[in-house]
Design a protein around this nucleic acid. Structure first.
Lengths: 191, 191
DNA sequence: TTTATATATTAACATTTGTTAATGTAAATA
DNA sequence: TATTTACATTAACAAATGTTAATATATAAA
């Protein structure tokens, strides 16, 4: 039995609204209307519109960093690490697709100093991925290629996945998705 | 010797501003300030802020559709077609990286009926790509895989490329980029 | 020289938007 | 029962924003 259902509903519906219309396009009045109460009511739950975005973004961002760090701490090979990264990325995205969508599309709307904090974290994350790939090439598990482009390609192969878990269509099985994405990243489309 | 340099400068700088800050975040006063004149001046060049976005978006969108259609009309094999799509996509992106960035990030800010017109076109484009991939699998040029996921993966491998041609860093050679991306898409990262 | 075009300004407008103050009520807790 | 907590309202604000009207000037074309 959940408590404070109204507060939870607020955060849930606001998140979806921001995903649907974009952060800048959503007004406090939009949110209020969706929840069927007056705009002033929102400030019982959150200090400002910006704070709302920050909350969503840093919450999911932390989870990704944390999960990545745990994988990196392990003694798995670079290839196994990448597979784990793919796996946990898809699991997390399947569980929190709307926050993931904000992470991809709305971080630009952060204001300083939060914007810098976020983009620095983003760089750190990407560099960690790049290091795994670099090591994998070095050790001969991956073929020789441009490391930066490989990093971008790898990350972009994961970035669109939230799209499969937002909306009302039947959701794809995360494990099947993981297999398909893994195959694409490691063996490509060719035979 | 170019004519109407001021008008050209307006469209150029507005485009870059929208790319940097996002369409919603850019105000007419921002644009005016960048061009060192008064806001009212903008309306000598364009009817409205929305019209500006529409202009950029449908211009580049048309080029992509046109280029794709020309490739599809050819008698090349699915694999060769995909390679051509990659190639022309990168060439176009290298030539118009800022418009490409808007195409990826700002189309949501279109208003009806332009929004529907755009998203319909997007669907058409993606379906054409899917059909090429489906045919390639059917003919045994590509390995057996989920067609929809392959389509998303293929497209997402191309979607980030504008990032390499905006900004002031040294631009990567498009032909080298094409090789790297092609290799990633067709053979993956593994050996 | 006259005319048309491109480019510019000032001033103001109607809306929209995030936010606050003051206050009330129903439900949960002590 | 008394009191705190959660949830709600009305009314208004200051600032920001897209846009327009009226008008001026420099330049290029006729």
């Amino acid at each position: 039995m959940k408590q404070t259902t109204k507060k939870e509903k607020f955060f849930e519906e606001s998140l979806k609204l921001i995903h649907e219309k974009g952060f800048k396009a959503v007004t406090m009045r939009d949110i209020a209307q969706r929840l069927d109460f007056e705009p002033a009511n929102i400030y019982n739950y959150i200090d400002s519109k910006q704070a709302l975005l920050e909350l969503y973004l840093f919450d999911i961002s932390y989870e990704f960093h944390d999960s990545l760090n745990n994988i990196l701490k392990s003694s798995y090979s670079p290839e196994e690490k990448l597979k784990l990264i793919i796996s946990t990325h898809i699991q997390l995205t399947a569980k929190k697709p709307y926050k993931m969508a904000l992470l991809v599309n709305e971080w630009r709307n952060l204001k300083e100093p939060k914007l810098t904090e976020f983009t620095e974290g983003k760089k750190v994350y990407e560099n960690k991925i790049r290091d795994v790939i670099a090591k994998g090439i070095e050790e001969g598990q991956f073929r020789s290629m441009d490391i930066e482009i490989a990093t971008y390609s790898f990350l972009s192969s994961l970035r669109w996945i939230y799209d499969k878990y937002t909306g009302s269509e039947s959701k794809i099985n995360p494990f099947e998705l993981e297999k398909q994405i893994s195959d694409f990243i490691f063996t490509g489309m060719g035979k």
